[in-house]
Design a protein around this nucleic acid. Sequence first.
DNA 1: GGCAATTGTGGCAATCCGGTGGCAGGGCCC
DNA 2: GGGCCCTGCCACCGGATTGCCACAATTGCC
Lengths: 229, 229
Amino acid sequence: MARRIAIVEDDPAIRANYADALKKHGFEVAAYGARAEALAAMKIRLPDLAIIDIGLGSDVDGGFALCRDLRALSAALPIIFLTARDSDFDVVSGLRLGADDYLTKDVSLPHLIARIAALFRRAELAGEAGSGEDQVERGALSIDLKRFTVRWQGALVPLTLTEFWMVHALAKFPGHVKDREQLMSEANLVVDDSTITSHVKRIRRKFAAVDAEFDRIETAYGMGYRWKA
Amino acid sequence: MARRIAIVEDDPAIRANYADALKKHGFEVAAYGARAEALAAMKIRLPDLAIIDIGLGSDVDGGFALCRDLRALSAALPIIFLTARDSDFDVVSGLRLGADDYLTKDVSLPHLIARIAALFRRAELAGEAGSGEDQVERGALSIDLKRFTVRWQGALVPLTLTEFWMVHALAKFPGHVKDREQLMSEANLVVDDSTITSHVKRIRRKFAAVDAEFDRIETAYGMGYRWKA
DNA sequence: GGCAATTGTGGCAATCCGGTGGCAGGGCCC
DNA sequence: GGGCCCTGCCACCGGATTGCCACAATTGCC
């Protein structure tokens, strides 16, 4: 199965150029010209790697914002900035936002491919160690990590991203207690303890809307929460 | 616990320079001037990240060889080439050898740090999922550190957090007497001695509710308590 | 057996923790 | 701009947990 790479670049010529080159290297390519379009598409289905430009049309820093959004979608998604901007400031900012690499547009194609390959190599290491699955099934619960959907007894539970990650964190190891800090880090958050409580409240409510009997999220007093098997 | 970074660079001045800068950023640094020396040291103890120059003294491609050797030692070790050579050919070769990043020596320090941080971030993703189950088994007693559950003869004993840690502290070393202070510190408490007595009382009661014959928590008069094997 | 020190017991009050409703700020879309 | 959604947080409440005390029971020692 070919790797899917998403390219976000506003210049149509450059975009087509890169898309072509990557396709020739055996990658599947999805190309987008604008931030909102790209984000919407990736929310439906995550690519295996994203290459994004920083300046997107009138949105001068659109790529930065997109990177942040994508990082929220997935902590593991490899992200490469590919842009004309070569100031140190931009590089550091980009990397701090969670990108894995930062390249300027003067890199040769072989160079770009080598960077992509290196990133895939590393991403794969993570996949082997962890649960590289993009689908989690726990009885009546099923989680689709690429589409960010959760089903309970077959019915779709409309969770927000934060809620999605929290459910994922809990259900990944049924029965294991996750304290609030662990839940935060798995959802890429740094918030107040009470906020976690709020999220759990909302998650429970959403599951209950689908199944009034729902009670799989158990509170472990003073310890955290656990997904009851 | 600070991250350990290994630097392999033949020029003593540059080496000291980078080593200093990284130390200032809170990393632990091990610096080496030659390939053999570096490899020998890392065989004994792998760093958390390696930064290597390509040209090492008379050994023009020594860095490449070292990278290959290190990759053989560990597929997961993050490796960065930091060198004066900026030809595309070298970059591609370096990355193909298994390096994660390739930087030229004109990068600023903030840029280098950002690259290092990005790599650590990604490497951490891999490490997370690996840790296996933590379980303590002592005859009829079984403690699950991940689930925060205690079973006696297979039956669940509903302990509170404080009680859980106290049972854990006692059962970890069966037969060893733990005085009240030790029990407090293992449960992260600072309380009156009599309070420990109360906790033991409640723990015994909860075990007795499961098994009327329960008598494994022994009082060592004047010394503390011990888990009877 | 007598005595002081130590531990067990029941119970109560203070505290901690989580659940709930609600609200405000920020972002996004129309 | 207006409306909507998501998110973070707070105040309040009820219940679980915890700390401690007075008093009874036990222990070690003479």
